[in-house]
Nucleic acid binder design. Sequence first.
RNA 1: GCCGGCGUAGCUCAACAGGUAGAGCAGCGCACUUGUAAUGCGCGGGUUGGGGGUUCGAGUCCCUCCGUCGGCUCCA
Length: 560
Amino acid sequence: MAQAVKRLFPDAKLAIGPAIEDGFYYDFDIPKKLTPEDLPRIEDEMNRIISEDLPIERREVRREEAIQLFRNKSERFKVEMLEEIDDERVTIYSQGEFFDLCRGPHLSRTGRVRAFKLLSLAGAYWRGDESREMLQRIYGTAFDSEKELNHYLGAREEALRRDHRKLGVELELFSIRDEIGPGLVIYHPKGAVLRTVIEDFLKKEHAKRGYQLVISPHIMRRDIWATSGHLQMEYPMYFFEIEGQGYGIKPMNCPAHIMIYKSRTRGHRDLPLRFFELGTVYRHERSGVLHGLLRVRGFTQDDAHIFCTMEQSEEEINNCISFAFEIQRIFGFDTFRIALSTRPEHFVGTHEDWEKATETLKKALESNELDYFIDEGEGVFYGPKIDVKLRDALGRWWQGPTIQFDFNLPRRFGMAYVGADNEEHTPVMIHRTVLGSLERYIGILIEHYAGAFPLWLAPVQVVVLPIADRHVTYASEIVGKLRSRGIRAEINQERETTANKIRKAWQMKIPYMIIVGDNEQNSNTLSVRSLSGKDERGLDLKQVIDDLLDEIESKAIRKA
RNA sequence: GCCGGCGUAGCUCAACAGGUAGAGCAGCGCACUUGUAAUGCGCGGGUUGGGGGUUCGAGUCCCUCCGUCGGCUCCA
C-alpha cells in the first residue's frame, strides 16, 4: 500500500505502518488531504503492483547505511526511527522501485497478495504523541482469499447492525440529545427498566457479600478534591461556586465513603468495611472521545470501597475477583482478558507502597489461577489496578470490572483504625467495580445480545396480542395476571393484522408473544410464540407463568 | 482537544453542473375485525444543525460555532 501511495503521491513521507489484529495501517505525511474517494484509487494502484508481481527482497544493512538511504529520500520519520534503534543492523525490504524499513517477514512477491481492502482514513499523531504532528492514517485489511475477506467484512456489518447507539434508539432504551448535551444519557422507560433490573440485582448481590449500601451527593466542596489530590492532578472535573464557596461535581465517590469511615473511631474489629454505592459521577471528557454509552460525561458506577488492614487486603481482593467473575458469567460473559497495571509516570505515594500493592494484586490473581498480563505504567495515579476485559458474542473486547489498590487516599485523608496493639494504623483502601459503569455495561450488553436480552433483563418480557377487538378483554386479563406475578407484560391492541403485531414485537425483540383469539378464549388457553419463532398452542396460563418465572429466576442466557 | 468525513421531516434516504424541498416508514384520521415477520385510502409534518458571508437567487459555494461519525490521545 505504501508503494501505491508513493506512486500516487510522490511527496508522501512514510511514517509507520504495522500489521494489527485484523489488518494493517500506514501513517503518511501527505500535503494533500486524503478523502474517502482516494481509497479506491490507491486500491487500483495496489492491484497494479500486485499484477506486476514484483519480487520482495530482504536486505540487512548497517544502521548508519540505512539512515543515509532514507535521508537521501528525505524520509524524516524513518530517519528519526532509525536514530533511536539500538541494533547495529536493520532490515530493509524492497519491491520494485520501493523500499522500506521493516522487521518483516514479508511475502516473497507482490503477486502473492490475494484479497485486500482499504477500510478507512483517520488522523493519528506521529508516535501517538499529542504534541507531535498529525499524520494521515489509512486502515486496511488483507486475507488469503476473497471468501475470508468477505467473511470479515460481513462481521463488520454485523457489528454495525448491533451498534448500541442504533439499537438504543430503535428499542427505545435511551437517547443522547444535543439539547441535553453531549455525553449525557437520558434513559427512556424501557432503558430505565433494564437499568433498574441491573441495579436491584447488584444491590442484592452486594448485600449478600457483606457490602453496605451508601449514598452520597453529586457535588462536594472544592477543598475535598484538594485533599484527595484530584485538583493537583488536574482531574477533568466541573467546578462552580455557591455563595462564594467552590464546589466540584464528583468524578468519583471515594471522598464521601472516606467521610463515612471517618464519622467515628474505627477499631480493627470493624474491618473490613465495605461501602457500596451506585454512584453517579461526571467527568469532563474531551469531546472527541465520547462514544454512545461506552464513553460519556455522566455515568453511574457500581462502585465500592473496601477499607481493611494490610493483612486482610489479599483476601478482600480475592473476594472482589471472584465476585466480579461470578456476576459477569451471569450476564453471559465467560471469556476474559486480565491486565495488571503498574505505576504510571505521574503518581502519588511512595515507591514502597506501590510495590506492596502491586505484589498483593499479583498474588490474588495467581491464587485465583487467572492468566494476566502486565500493563506497564498504566495504573491510576493513586494505585495499581486490575482491569478485566470481556469478550462478547462477536469476539470483541470490552472494558469491564476494575479493582484498584489505594495506599494514598487513606493517608491523605488521615484515616486510621485502632489496632489490637491499641496503636493507630492507616487502613488499606480498595476501589472496585463489578460491571464498571452501568452506561457502558448496558452498551456492551446491547451489542453482545444484539438487543435480544435474556428474559430476566428484557424491558418487556411478554406482549399479548389479541387477534380482534373482541379478544381485548381476555388479553387484558392475561396481562393483569402476568403483571401481578411481576412479569413485565404489555398488550398491543392496535387494530392491525396479527402478522403486523408479530412483526412489531419481533422488531422490539420481545422474548415472548402471547396470541389469543377465538380458539384460546373459548378454551381458556393461550398460544405462545417466542422471539426465535417457536409456536406453541393451547397452553395453560398458570403453566406459562410458572415457566416464565423459572426462566427469569434462572437468569438463563438465550442465544441472540 | 487534534486530523478527516458528515449534518435535509421522529427514523432511513432523495433533490442534474447554485433556480425558493420530495419519498418510504412512523404519527394522526377513516375504512377493515383480522390467526403467526408490513391491510387499504387520506391528512398533517421541514425557517435543510445555529450564525454570518458570496450571489439576482444557497440544501447546494465560503467562514465560523454546535453536534455527530472514523481514528489519534485519554478512559469506567
